[in-house]
Structure formats: structure tokens, C-alpha cells
Simulated assay, not measured.
Amino acid sequence: MSWLEVIHPGVQSSVQDSGRRGYRHHGLAAGGALDLISFTWANKLLNNPRHAACLEIMLGGFRAIAHGSLQIAITGARTSVAVNGEPVELWRTLNLNDGDELTISHSVHNRLIYLAVAGGLDSPEQFGSRTVVVREKLEGRGPIKAGDKLVPREPQRKVPSREVPAHQRSDFSSEVVIGLIPGYQYTQFQRSDILRLTTSSYTVSDQSDRMGFRLQGKALDCPPPGIISEGIAHGSVQIPGDGQPIVLLNDGQTIGGYPKPGVVPILDCSRLAQQLPGDRVRFELCDLATAQNQRRLFELHYQNTRWCQNGQALEWL
């Protein structure tokens, strides 16, 4: 059996898959990988099942030792990765041999790094998912600690060397533009406030985490008053009394009483989740059909493409 021994987990590392479904009415957050795009590519590189569990590493600073031979893939934030002190590239497959030391440096540009192993990570499954929501404090569902073993679900099988084409990698270098699908209390907001929300630039607050991202910028003048608490979707944009938007993410609460002009599409939430405090974000209005089509194309690309023999591109089946 092959596995990775965690020497240092970094700021926070946790096992994440694509999240739980059908349990929000019990008060359980969906959880799952914050950056669905990087998470999905890590699994695609290894031909893993679509929802296979990976390790989500926040801000890097991770170190582990391989026991036996492993094939892994690392995607996400721009950072330095090394095996036995020798630099290696992200967004590609990587072979580890027994005794190899994997080091992922601290990221200074983005937030999240994903480490996948061939076959996916094996960990306890609860409520139909292996995802970890730290704040829920479910038994045996905490962050990764030094000394933990990261064990693949399946015996290791090597795939040919592969690399995500440069034009298909996430670009985290520019101001992030995220869509806003009108909904919830949209019609109760003043037109001037909707214009302010969708024409202003905001910065990510240091009070941002897996529950939600607080944004700072031009406050809305007259948001509607608080409402009776209601169910909240992933990506909902809350406007509390200070007029500053909060985008709720994977570990967000399931109900809330702040008014909401709309919802950010999941793929845009992935781009937002990679941003660090001080990074700039801008909203733009989008329609539901466009967001749905983008998500459908994203899922079809995973299911209906295969790697070319040279491992440098994909082709549609």
C-alpha cells in the first residue's frame, strides 16, 4: 500500500470533494472544494472519478513524505513546488517514489492549492461525501494534522505524463469579474444601489474564509431592511446594514436574514475563492441561462473529453 505521510499541513489543509447534496435542510453546509475549477483539473489529470476527494491546501506551507510509489497532480494557486528539493511544475502529473519529500511553498499570490492522488483520497464518508466542514466539528472530520496518512482509495495505477494546456489554466493575475444573477430581493433594492454594486470595484477583506468572502468598497446607500430568515444558496450575495457585500461560499450558513440582490454562479465563486485580502473584485449582471450553459459546458468537458496520446491536449469523444 502507498500513502503520503504529512510532515507539515501548512496554514490549513482539509480533505474536500465536490460537496454534500440534500442535507442543507438539516443545517449542514454543502462544503466541498472552494475552487471547483482547480479541483476538477487535478482529478482530470489522473482520470479520477469526477467527485474524487483531494487535499485542499490553504496558502501552502505543506510538506509530506511518500511511502511507496504514488502518482499525484497539483493545481491551483501560483506557488513553488519541489520534490527532494528539485523544483517541479504545477498543473501536471507527478510521480513520487518511496521516500520522496514533497514540499509546497507558501503562496503569496493566491489562496488555494489542490493535491490529488490517482484513485482519489480515502477518508471517512458521511452524508454521502468525504468533504470536511471544520466549523461543524463532526467526529473525525477535522483539518489535516502532522502525522496523518493520506491514503489512496485504489491501488496506484500510473497514467502517462500529462499537463493542462496553458490556455485552459485559471488566470489569477487580473481583477476578477464575477457574475450576479438577479434574484431574492433584487427588486427591493434601489436602482442606484444596483448600479453602484455592478459598476464599483471591491477589495477582498481579511475577514474572508470558507464560509464567505467579505468585500469592501462603496457601500450601498439604502439596502432593504432585514427580512425573515430564509434558505440561502451557494454564492448568495448578502448586504448587511453597513452596505458592504458578503458572498457566501461552500461552508456558509444555510439560512439568513440579510437582503440579497442575487447569486454569484459557482464557477465565478471558484475564481473569487482564490483571491487574497486586498485583491480586487467587480460584479457584473448576468442571466441564469448563461450561467447554466457555462456550467453545463464545464461538466460536459470533464465527462466527454479524453487526453491525447502526447498528454498535452484533450479531444472530444
Rank of each mutant, 00 (worst) to 15 (best):
Q188A: 12
Q188W: 09
P49L: 03
F213Q: 02
Q292I: 12
S236L: 13
R282A: 12
N250T: 12
P277T: 09
W3K: 08
R210E: 05
K218T: 13
A30I: 13
L28G: 01
S208Y: 10
G252P: 01
S161V: 14
D100L: 00
V177C: 04
Y202A: 06
L138P: 04
C308F: 11
H106T: 14
L34S: 11
V15K: 04
D148S: 12
K44N: 06
G19N: 05
Y184F: 08
H234T: 03
S170P: 12
T103P: 02
H67G: 00
F127L: 12
L59I: 11
E284W: 03
S2Q: 07
L317S: 12
S105L: 07
K158E: 14
V204M: 04
P87F: 14
L215T: 06
L272C: 01
K137V: 09
K149W: 12
H109R: 11
T40Y: 04
Q274L: 09
Q12H: 00
L102K: 01
G231E: 10
L55Y: 07
R191S: 15
I227T: 03
L121G: 00
P155F: 04
V15L: 11
S38P: 02
K260N: 06
D98E: 08
H109Q: 14
C222M: 00
E315M: 14
G252R: 15
V134T: 14
R50S: 05
P225F: 03
N250W: 08
V264F: 05
N304I: 04
S236V: 15
P261D: 11
S14L: 13
D100K: 05
L150T: 01
S123C: 04
Q156K: 04
S129M: 10
S200L: 12
T79Y: 02
E315G: 04
V151C: 02
S129T: 02
V132H: 00
G120P: 02
W307A: 03
T305F: 14
V108F: 12
C286H: 00
C308T: 13
G147W: 07
A146G: 02
R169N: 06
R50V: 08
V83R: 03
F283E: 05
G235V: 07
V88M: 01
Q126T: 10
T203C: 10
N293E: 15
P277H: 10
T40S: 14
C286R: 13
G212L: 07
G119T: 08
H106K: 15
R280C: 11
V264L: 06
L102F: 00
N47H: 14
F127C: 01
D251F: 14
E136G: 06
P261Y: 12
A146S: 10
L90C: 01
A291C: 11
R141T: 07
R24M: 07
Y184P: 09
Y258I: 03
E299V: 14
Q274Y: 01
L288E: 13
I65T: 15
A53C: 00
L102M: 09
H234P: 09
V237E: 08
K137A: 15
D287F: 13
I255G: 05
G61N: 00
L267N: 10
H106W: 11
N84F: 00
V83K: 05
N293P: 08
T254C: 10
I178W: 02
G257W: 13
Q238C: 06
H26V: 00
G256N: 09
P155S: 13
Q185K: 08
R78K: 15
